[in-house]
Design a protein around this nucleic acid. Sequence first.
DNA 1: ACAAGTACTTACCCCAGAGTATGTATCATG
DNA 2: CATGATACATACTCTGGGGTAAGTACTTGT
Lengths: 132, 132
Amino acid sequence: MTKIKENSTSNQNKEISALACPVTYVMNKIGGHWKSIIIYQLKEGPKRYSELKRAIPAVTEKMLIQSLKQLEADNLLIRKAEPVVPPFVTYFLSSSGKELVPLMHLMAEWAIHDSRREEKTKAFSEQVLMMD
Amino acid sequence: MTKIKENSTSNQNKEISALACPVTYVMNKIGGHWKSIIIYQLKEGPKRYSELKRAIPAVTEKMLIQSLKQLEADNLLIRKAEPVVPPFVTYFLSSSGKELVPLMHLMAEWAIHDSRREEKTKAFSEQVLMMD
DNA sequence: ACAAGTACTTACCCCAGAGTATGTATCATG
DNA sequence: CATGATACATACTCTGGGGTAAGTACTTGT
């Protein structure tokens, strides 16, 4: 009853240090459906806001800027706005952001590997069902 | 007004293929706060349910089995229950799961790198504030 | 007889992340 | 003068991921 869960860190700060849990740290930065997709889109070089929108049709404008803002706040990308009209804004990866690219390639590699394996498993179990 | 957003894919299937977006694919499998932590815990070898619970005190039992179930459904880990009483259940990484380990190490590496950089930036901006 | 350990299950609630829809400022062009 | 393009902002809603709390079944130890 009176067992109070004692959090040594209490709610001091939500910012979990990388040492405490690196995965959570990374997730806090590139978690959410869109951030990683945006980074992926920027890996080859800078893109304009509208280019990003076109490159990722499924994202809403709200989600797009929201994600961009967060990524910028986390220094993963840099926003460069030229004071002209119509506005010309480009986004590109910072050095931290660039260092994420190999990570994402590894993810992609694993994903392809794993999806193949999944298909095989499915095919196999279908065969089993057929034989039954 | 009548502009209906036409989703070419509609809601055909939520299962996004690895080819469409590898990152989303990976996120669907190891996203959520606990899954990756569990995998991290299992990277050295099998563990019992209660061992996992003790190793990750912050997780609730509900979240723990929920995550374990999902990981099992995605073939990232294997559950082995010995029919004894009291129950003896162990969890260990499948081959797919094992292949995630290097990925997570890369994540950890990046996280440490990045958190260092963050500290420096903060220290620097504090200096600037001091001088102001 | 009762607590403790094992591995769960179930009901309920809350809130942040994501989606929908619309509004804004500026200028060029027809 | 109205439309389109650019790069956003903002209000409202909704869903599901996660948290809290309690219950279950079975046996050993005291």
